[in-house]
Amino acid sequence: MAANPLGGGSFGEALARHGLQLTREETRVLQVNVGLACDLSCRHCHLEAGPQRVEMMDRDTMDAVIDCARRFRFQSIDLTGGAPELVPDLDRLVRSLAPLTNRLMVRTNLVALNSGEGSALCELYRELGVGLVASLPASNAAQTEAQRGEGVWGRSVEALKRLNSLGYGMPESPLRLDLVSNPSGAFLPPPQQQAEQKFRSDLSRRHGISFNSLYTFANVPLGRFRSFLERSGNLDGYLAQLTDGFNPCSVAGLMCRYQLSVDWRGRLYDCDFHLAQGVWYGGEETHISTLAELPAPGTTIPTADHCFACTVGAGFT
């Protein structure tokens, strides 16, 4: 793993300074990255997903994921991408996984829900009670489109309104619609509760849109976002913000302690950022079909410099 370009000590050293170790707790979540194909090319994407990417999960790998979910009964299964909606047979994967977990959720860029296939998936999600986690960086067009591309704001609003009409994100409805906001630039996100209040007010007042919860996450300096940081002369300053903002209290709740992440080829990681960097679960390439048991609590999790993005402020949980 590369040395910290800041010279301020690696993530492991930051943990050690606070007498901490990054170790696993009981594994409750399976995150499934079904591929990098996407109809958007967001400027903050750590995976550099986009229309030109062809990596997608095939049926055999889906079967291996389903088999794993049957063997281990995860509390939550989290499907992500790319845009999951673009992956052939996603509906089959969703139908198969839904009865195998307490909570199945699918990440969406919203725009992909506006296609014919996307509309059909919305109906399927509703039928199965699948939770939706939608990316929306801001409650205004300018910042949303700066991150996600021209025309995305209008299409996102359209999708959110349709989801509301299906019952998603509405008061008293069991169909959860959560939003995820990443900053539109080289700055840290606002405190989650304050941002949620503002999104709720703006989206309700201007567009009549409801949602359940908003999650704010710092951008991870990998992929396209790192390229932006380098081009714009913001890299050193942003990395310094991440390391200076290291919050030891955030370590206990980090998602990597509770989840396994699997890519479109069935290979395992501790999180989607390690996936982006090729940092294997267990230190070597492991296919999900060969996973004999879940990681034991106390197992050490490999760290890298990008981990600082998950421990800044309130942290990435």
Partner: peptide, 12 residues
């Protein structure tokens, strides 16, 4: 400027 962005304000 940075504080406003980090607290969720936008350029408008």
């Amino acid at each position: 400027t940075r504080a406003c962005l980090e607290k969720g304000s936008h350029l408008g």
